[in-house]
Design a protein around this nucleic acid. Structure first.
Length: 604
RNA sequence: GGGGCGGUAGUUCAGUUUGGUUAGAACGCCGGCCUGUCACGCCGGAGGUCGCGGGUUCGAGCCCCGUCCGCCCCGCCA
């Protein structure tokens, strides 16, 4: 080892010892006489001192040190002179007086300084990700990510789970997201797909009798990116046999409890609250509510019907909804400010925004359409008091939910309602199916292997595949886990009987031939004694993002991709040679000018 | 595919509204001075394809058209 200790570990008890440390020159303060350097390694920083009184030669050489040079220094640990201690850092009571200096490597001037990297444009940081990652904050994120993964492995191991790998080169399944495809050289015209998740394989592992499987695994989806979505991301994927959803819930609750205690020293309240999909939509407008604050939606349809405001009446009569939020203390808003709220609502898809100020009675352009008593009941239902602003959206149900759920988040922020902390919830009783108006058929809301709730199984098996009302009413044994308004995982109890699975395909209008072609291996497996089973997949990137308080999962992924799914550092994706294309039996249709054989590949 | 914001020195930004002399600041970098600093200080210096292409104009960082890249969002995706 080139060093005796790590920089961040030096303490008072080391005073008098002669030790070697290595690291990067973080900051230098060259006084001409004395030279101070903050030396940084993974553990932290310590101050090293070059004094001509210790060694004239070493002191002379130290003038040439620059930012991010990698050095090894050896010398005596001394107590800092009284009054010069730095109480802000753990090593601040001591310093290393350098007797020997070795420059292990020099560094070119940096494109951005390590300490100010956080304020540097992301393009540049992504291009030089190795420098961005030198920042203590980002390094901490990656270290915590490691710890989380390690804790999860240990926890699941203790609970009898086996980590089993599944193929990365697998079969394309057109359901769900767009696949990343990999051409097969040995099968011209054929393609592998990178897995969107190991769904089918983990179910087959249950049929194989492993009972408890897990994997921390990369998944791939060729869809557009967001701050919390990358084309390749990591799932904590698990599956269990002989379980009901409650078993999965308590397993995951125990896991979260352990993680939050270990990483954040926070005691979570378990079990987490459960909310049906229906209630979540009615109360919060979406199925990933941020439960750190109230500001719930209230249904106003019955009261709206007692007035003569045409927009409200039309909405109710055409099967829509009228719902409202209470803008606490917002009655003082000017007309212009309310117009801005209206613009927000419109940008979220609403036709308009109706409002009533509770201020010396009821102040609103639409107040005249309602009897005083109805207005009072509206206020009562919203718990609106003098000084509040009632905000209404009337439209098709999905528009009302969508607009108000977003306005709820906006107002929560604006009114500073969002409390510090971590609010978990299970969202349960999802509809099994979802009508796809474009394709005029039902889609599986979760995926086609999700079982209906026990109470609905017979109804599903007996019903006609075209019975829209019946099919819409079926509930699934599917569940999502939500944290502070983020979906961090989801899963279901699966169908383990071939007859039910076949019925499911029938409902989804997938022919037997088509089902065989796409999922034949699963159907085969299901007929040989498949146990009841179910599981869940957690988004590791999002979970770590929330644990470290990052704004984007890019900050918890060592080498993330840009919004256009390219890697600024490596230049991927890149053109390939004619020879490579030919070997794969692929012709591209554009004039992309692939590089010639043997030529150096361009960097984007 | 669509909407919004951004791209000017190594970096972060100002300058764009209203086109006009030599495009500025801070930090960083280079040189000098400095023995208790910790964002060290002081003095001096270098550093620019104003993302790229085209257009309008006597004249474009600024106006117009196109295009590329990054970020946020919708669609998409669980």
């Amino acid at each position: 080892m080139m060093r005796d200790r790590q920089c961040g570990t030096l303490r008072e008890e080391d005073i008098g010892s002669v030790l070697a440390v290595t690291g990067w020159v973080f900051r230098r303060r060259d006084h001409g006489g004395l030279i101070f350097i903050d030396l940084r390694d993974r553990s932290g920083i310590c101050q090293v001192v070059f004094s001509p009184e210790v060694s004239g030669e070493v002191h002379e050489n130290a003038h040439n040190l620059r930012a991010e040079y990698v050095i090894s220094v050896k010398g005596e640990i001394r107590r800092r002179p009284e009054g010069t201690e730095n109480r802000d850092i753990p090593t601040g009571l001591v310093e290393l007086y350098v007797k020997e200096l070795e420059v292990l490597n020099e560094s070119a001037p940096l494109p951005f300084t390590i300490e100010e990297a956080a304020e540097t444009g992301e393009t540049l940081r992504l291009k030089h990700k190795y420098l961005d990652l030198r920042r203590p904050e980002l390094q901490q994120n990656i270290i915590i990510r490691h710890r989380v993964a390690k804790l999860i492995r240990d926890y699941l191991d203790e609970h009898g789970f086996l980590e089993i790998e599944t193929p990365v080169l697998t079969k394309s399944t057109p359901e769900g997201a767009r696949d990343y495809l990999v051409p097969s050289r040995l099968h011209p015209g054929h393609f592998f797909a990178l897995p969107q998740s190991p769904q089918l394989f983990k179910q087959i592992l249950m049929v194989a009798g492993f009972e408890k499987y897990f994997q921390i695994v990369k998944c791939f989806r060729d869809e557009d990116l967001r701050a919390d979505r990358q084309p390749e991301f990591t799932q904590v994927d698990l599956e269990m046999s002989f379980v009901e959803k409650n078993h999965i819930f308590s397993l995951i609750e125990g896991l979260m409890e352990m993680l939050f205690r270990d990483v954040l020293d926070i005691d979570l309240n378990i079990p987490f609250q459960r909310l049906s999909f229906h209630d979540s939509m009615e109360r919060f407008g979406n199925d990933k509510p941020d439960l750190r604050f109230g500001l719930e939606l209230s249904d106003m349809a019955d009261l709206a019907e007692q007035g003569t405001f045409k927009v409200f009446l039309d909405a109710v009569q055409s099967g829509g909804k009228v719902k409202a939020l209470n803008g606490k203390g917002m009655a003082g808003l000017s007309r212009k400010e309310i117009d801005m709220l209206t613009e927000d609502a419109q940008s979220y898809g609403a036709q308009g925004l109706a409002w009533i100020k509770v201020k010396n009675g009821f102040d609103s352009p639409i107040a005249k359409f309602f009897p005083e008593e109805v207005l009072r009941q509206m206020a009562q239902r919203l718990r609106a008091e003098e000084g509040d602003l009632m905000l209404f959206i009337a439209d098709k149900p999905n528009v009302v939910y969508d607009v108000l759920s977003r306005m709820r988040l906006d107002l929560g922020q604006r009114l500073n309602l969002i409390k510090q902390g971590y609010a978990f919830a299970w969202i349960v009783d999802y509809p099994l199916l979802e009508w796809d108006d474009e394709e005029k058929r039902f889609q599986a809301m979760h995926h086609p292997f999700t079982a209906p709730i026990d109470a609905d199984r017979e109804k599903m098996l007996a019903g006609a595949a075209g019975d829209k009302t019946m099919l819409s009413s079926l509930k699934a044994q599917a569940y999502d886990i939500v944290l502070n308004g983020n979906e961090i995982g989801g899963g279901s109890i699966r169908i383990h009987k071939k007859t039910v699975q076949q019925k499911m395909f029938e409902i989804l209008n997938i022919s037997e031939k088509e089902a065989r072609m796409k999922f034949g291996f699963l159907l085969d497996a299901l007929q040989y004694g498949a146990p009841p089973h179910g599981g869940i997949a957690l988004g590791l990137d999002r979970l770590v993002m929330l644990l470290v308080g990052a704004q984007s999962i890019r900050d918890v992924i060592a080498f993330p991709k840009t919004q256009k799914a390219s890697c600024m550092m490596s230049g991927a994706p890149s053109l390939i040679t004619h020879g490579q294309l030919k070997e794969l039996h692929i012709k591209t249709d554009g004039n992309f000018d692939p590089p010639e054989e043997g030529s150096v590949q361009g960097q984007g």
